[in-house]
Simulated assay, not measured.
Amino acid sequence: MALPDPGGLTGLQVLDARFGPEALLRCPRLETLALSNCVLPAGLHALRELPELTRLSFFNGGEYDLAPLAPLDRMRIEVGANVRVHGAEAVPPERITYLP
């Protein structure tokens, strides 16, 4: 996934894509990220390097391992009904919201 110059980008929604989250490191001001049916072969580890990211949402399918996000006290995670997650037990339950 190639992004144009992200400038002051603070929110992003990615739909039906296969990409490495490290591409998002060019967006250091990113606060919210919504992933809809995405495939992330390298997992979510790179998102830990985004200092402003406080809200991560998963919608419309996909499978994600949340364990790499466990140390991020600032991170709030929303999980849609058709999304499969692993590693949620590593994340404090008050930081995860399961949507209908």
Results as ranks from 00 to 15, higher is better:
Ala88Ser: 13
Asn82Lys: 09
Asp73Leu: 14
Met75Ser: 04
Ser57Phe: 11
Leu25Asn: 01
Cys27Trp: 02
Thr10Asn: 05
Arg55Cys: 08
Ala46Ser: 01
Leu9Ser: 08
Ile96Asn: 04
Pro6Cys: 08
Met75Ile: 07
Pro71Ser: 01
Arg74Gln: 14
Asp5Glu: 13
Ala67Leu: 05
Ala70Val: 01
Ser36Lys: 13
Glu49Gln: 01
Ala34Cys: 14
Leu3Gln: 06
Val83Leu: 01
Thr54Arg: 15
Pro71Ile: 04
Val91Gln: 00
Ala70Ser: 05
Ser36Asp: 03
Leu47Asp: 00
Glu78Tyr: 15
Leu56Val: 06
Ala23Glu: 02
Ala67Phe: 07
Asp16Phe: 07
Gly8Val: 07
Leu30Gln: 01
Glu31Asp: 11
Arg29Asn: 12
Ala42Ser: 09
Arg26Gly: 15
Val79Phe: 05
Ala81Tyr: 04
Leu72Lys: 10
Leu12Ala: 08
Cys27Thr: 09
Ala23Thr: 09
Ala67Cys: 09
Asp5Gly: 13
Gly43Lys: 06
Phe59Asn: 11
Thr32Asp: 10
Glu22Ala: 13
Ile77Arg: 12
Arg76Ser: 12
Asp65Gly: 14
Val79Lys: 07
Val14Cys: 03
Ala23Val: 12
Leu50Phe: 00
Ala23Gly: 09
Leu9Phe: 10
Ser57Cys: 10
Pro6Ile: 06
Val79Thr: 12
Pro100Trp: 05
Arg76Tyr: 09
Arg18Asn: 07
Glu22Pro: 05
Leu24His: 11
Ala70Lys: 06
Gly87Asp: 05
Thr32Tyr: 11
Glu63Val: 09
Glu78Thr: 15
Gly43Gln: 07
Pro93Glu: 01
Glu52Leu: 11
Val83Thr: 03
Leu50Tyr: 00
Asn60Phe: 08
Pro41Cys: 00
Gly20Tyr: 03
Thr54His: 14
Gly20Cys: 08
Cys27Leu: 03
Arg74Ser: 13
Pro92Ser: 06
Glu89Gln: 15
His86Glu: 12
Leu66Lys: 13
Ile77Thr: 13
Gly80Tyr: 01
Leu44Ile: 11
Met75Trp: 02
Leu53Ile: 00
Leu15Cys: 07
Pro41Trp: 00
Ala34Trp: 12
Phe59Arg: 12
Ala23Lys: 12
Val39Met: 01
Val79Ser: 08
Glu89Lys: 15
Arg76His: 12
Pro68Leu: 05
Glu22His: 06
His86Lys: 15
Asp5Lys: 13
Arg29Met: 10
Glu94Lys: 15
Gly87Tyr: 07
Arg84Asp: 08
Leu99Ser: 12
Glu49Thr: 00
Gly20Lys: 04
Gly8Met: 06
Phe59Pro: 06
Pro21Ala: 10
Asn82Val: 08
Glu94Cys: 09
Glu78Pro: 11
Glu31Ile: 13
Ile96Glu: 01
Leu12Arg: 07
Leu44Ser: 13
Arg74Cys: 15
Phe58Val: 05
Phe59Cys: 07
Phe19Ala: 06
